[in-house]
């Protein structure tokens, strides 16, 4: 480890130091440190407490404080692994790890399943999917009649819900995304490959000798 603690840094990192987080994820130590620069910006945008609350998360996504969004809220809840209403740096790194281009597909499929399992029942249910479609329409210019929405749901569940019990289980979801791989596109952020280039200032704040990691 490097020399003395820099101001404010320990407060953010707690016990989750970059070497430990890198060992648990696809990220290198430098990449974890670069993510810390991003984390600092987001977590101090409303309250500078070293944690990201939902308002800060939505603000970072939309650059707009007032927007209420089902999907952003859902992603936030999944990032908030400890269910404390806030995301700490460890949660942030471990969650973004799922979105790394090198992370196994299985992990991405698992995360996307949880994302769409709105009521946490262990299934993707038709009523939840309808709720998400309505939320999408609410945030876009797109207009669809209820009959058209029901048609889309019929078609989707006919294909995805193999045993036709009205809900999609994990095995059915795996099968469905393997036939529709574009659905996993949102689960990969190519940007994460270049995170050290995006946040070069991590070098000045680094406390870790990369060779020692």
């Amino acid at each position: 480890m490097g020399c003395g603690p820099s101001k404010g840094r320990r407060q953010y990192l707690g016990n989750e130091d970059p070497v430990f987080l890198a060992s648990q994820t696809t990220f290198s130590v430098s990449e974890v440190e670069a993510l810390f620069e991003l984390f600092k910006t987001i977590s101090s945008s409303v309250i500078d407490d070293g944690l990201i609350n939902k308002e800060e998360f939505v603000l970072a996504l939309f650059k707009n404080r007032t927007k209420e969004n089902l999907f952003a809220s859902r992603i936030f809840d999944l990032f908030d692994v400890k269910h404390r209403g806030v995301i700490d740096f460890g949660d942030f790194v471990r969650s973004l790890h799922i979105f790394h281009p090198n992370t196994p597909l299985e992990d991405k499929i698992g995360f996307s399943f949880k994302l769409y399992d709105l009521d946490n029942t262990g299934f993707i249910e038709r009523k939840g999917v309808k709720q998400m479609l309505l939320a999408l329409l609410g945030e876009s210019e797109m207009k669809l009649a209820d009959e058209a929405i029901e048609m889309i749901l019929d078609k989707t569940f006919l294909e995805a819900d193999i045993n036709q019990d009205g809900k999609i289980d994990m095995t059915e979801w795996q099968h469905f995304v393997s036939k529709n791989p574009s659905l996993l596109k949102i689960m990969t952020l190519p940007y994460l490959r270049d995170i050290t280039t995006a946040f070069p200032s991590f070098v000045f704040n680094s406390e870790v000798d990369e060779d020692a990691a």
Partner: peptide
Amino acid sequence: QPVAMNAFELISMSKGLNLENLFGT
């Protein structure tokens, strides 16, 4: 045409699911 897409293709279009925005891009 939205009706030609499956529900999840449509849902994927939500800005709230586009985490690229977190990076300020």
